[in-house]
């Protein structure tokens, strides 16, 4: 009981602190998934390209970013790159812009690798006979892709992208280590002020869970809607 009372006390006193953290967590996650999806689509195309060097590069990228910790990628971009003269500019009207950019870039590059695999497997899950039939009618590879394969692949891809967003929300907590004021960073701040370690962390866990649970329900709902329309 004491435990819950403390949590409520923390929330009422530092609520706007947490709220700002949630906002930043969502902004970074959303940007990472949007950029990750755009880049990931291109990466998936490169990964399936007929041009060997391009395919090889894309495969190397995907394997590398999936095979190393996001924490390493993030700190490398934020601390490592400026040492070789690459750093993100500061903008006067957005505080901590370069920090924020480093976080978004690292998260996007990382998400790109996962999304590329989601898109590739979504496309490859479509029966090759579909493309074959399109080509036999005289349609080009591109026409077969846009008219026949992608509309079917999208039904595999969209739910997986939703899940990727959920993963990114959780993973984004690492950006707190470079000082971005996300939910985890704010939690640490409140923890340091109140010394209620357990209660602060429990609050963070509950908020993260509410976020991911809500989105996973949304994804499941969207998935059901799509399956409702047509079966394959």
């Amino acid at each position: 009981m004491q435990f819950i009372q403390t949590i409520i006390k923390i929330l009422s006193k530092y609520g706007n602190f947490y709220a700002e953290g949630v906002r930043n967590t969502l902004i970074i996650s959303l940007m990472a998934v949007v950029f990750g999806t755009l880049l990931g689509a291109l990466m998936a195309l490169a990964r399936m390209s007929k041009i060997k060097p391009l395919r090889w590069l894309a495969t190397a990228y995907i394997e590398f970013f999936r095979g190393t910790p996001l924490m390493v990628q993030l700190t490398f971009i934020f601390y490592g790159l400026p040492m070789v003269g690459i750093s993100f500019p500061e903008v006067s009207f957005i505080p901590d812009f370069s920090r924020f950019m480093a976080g978004v870039v690292a998260m996007s590059l990382n998400s790109c690798a996962y999304v590329a695999e989601v898109i590739r497997s979504g496309i490859q899950a479509v029966d090759p006979g579909q493309m074959e039939a399109a080509r036999c009618l005289g349609l080009s590879g591109g026409q077969g892709m846009t008219m026949v394969v992608l509309p079917q692949a999208i039904r595999n891809i969209l739910p997986a992208l939703g899940n990727e967003f959920i993963t990114v929300i959780k993973e984004s907590s690492v950006v707190s280590v470079i000082g971005i004021a996300d939910l985890m960073y704010r939690t640490n701040g409140v923890k340091a002020k109140t010394y209620n370690v357990l209660e602060c962390l429990a609050t963070a866990a509950i908020i993260y869970f509410i976020l991911t649970f809500t989105f996973s329900k949304l994804v499941a709902w969207a998935e059901r809607r799509m399956a409702h329309g047509r079966k394959s």
Binding site: D127, Q130, A133, S140, Q152
Partner: peptide
């Protein structure tokens, strides 16, 4: 592609466009 327009093809697995 123009050549294939002249040659209709029917498959064992039908391959109708599912979408």
């Amino acid at each position: 592609n123009r050549h294939r327009e002249k040659m209709g093809m029917v498959f064992q697995q039908f391959n109708l466009f599912n979408n």
